[in-house]
């Protein structure tokens, strides 16, 4: 791989605050620079997509935000689509990790669900660009990303299925094979509607509603409301 980082950060057209590596001969290992360039391109894509939407984003937008050369872009990705997939995967990996850690820190399942939802809302509210990328723009970024989006949503199902464990026969009789899918779908639709409308500042206030909604089939509405209020 060519050492194109030096060349790009020295280029005068890039504002210094966008260059996240110090210019000149920094003496960093080549793999690190390459990895860092990839991260910068991913961050650059997120900024470019937030500004122009997926359809309106060009490779020039991405490289400008990332403060790297066009040649560097093509050393890492063959197309805008490929860069978007990498960005999407990075965001979802981060989200998955945070939700999983929050969930695992609680002993009781209802509190774990609450913590997991809180972690998801917290991340999306703190990162409105990434929220838009992963929940709105992903759907227009072609079939490869849409498929990943669908399976990312489905990957939340097991967290809720865990709530079946130890429930009474009567409760279990009230749950159907699609209960968890419907709960997850309802939750995601509330979240993505607010991101679509640029109202990410409202996301965290959804926490009690989402907790009550998702716990009600397992705990009944009175108990679910109690957990929801924290």
């Amino acid at each position: 791989m060519r050492d194109s980082a030096n060349q790009s950060v020295e280029s005068p057209e890039y504002p210094p605050e966008l260059a996240r590596l110090p210019p000149g001969r920094h003496g960093l290992p080549r793999e690190f620079v390459a990895h860092n360039q990839r991260e910068r391109l991913i961050a650059g894509l997120a900024e470019a997509v937030a500004e122009n939407g997926y359809a309106g984003t060009t490779i020039a937008h991405i490289t400008r935000h990332a403060a790297v050369s066009r040649r560097t872009f093509y050393e890492h990705f063959s197309s805008k689509d490929e860069c978007f997939v990498a960005a999407y995967d990075t965001v979802m990996e981060e989200l998955r990790t945070r939700v999983g850690e929050a969930f695992d820190q609680e002993d009781e399942w209802p509190q774990a669900i609450r913590a997991g939802i809180a972690a998801m809302l917290g991340f999306l509210a703190a990162e409105p660009h990434l929220a838009r990328l992963s929940m709105v723009e992903a759907l227009v970024a072609g079939p490869v990303v849409v498929e990943r989006y669908d399976s990312a949503i489905q990957s939340l199902v097991p967290y809720f299925q865990a709530g079946r464990e130890g429930r009474s026969k009567e409760i279990l009789a009230g749950l159907s094979p699609t209960t968890e899918e419907a709960l997850v779908g309802g939750m995601v639709s509330l979240i993505s509607r607010r991101i679509f409308a640029d109202r990410t500042d409202e996301l965290e206030s959804l926490l009690p509603d989402l907790v009550e909604f998702t716990l009600t089939p397992y705990l009944g509405s009175a108990e679910a409301a109690k957990v929801a209020r924290g």
Binding site: E181, G185, G186, V188, D209, L210, A228
Partner: peptide
Amino acid sequence: PETLEEAIIGGVFW
């Protein structure tokens, strides 16, 4: 919850 209907419909559509 205020958003209940929105969530139910979102779930059905999903």
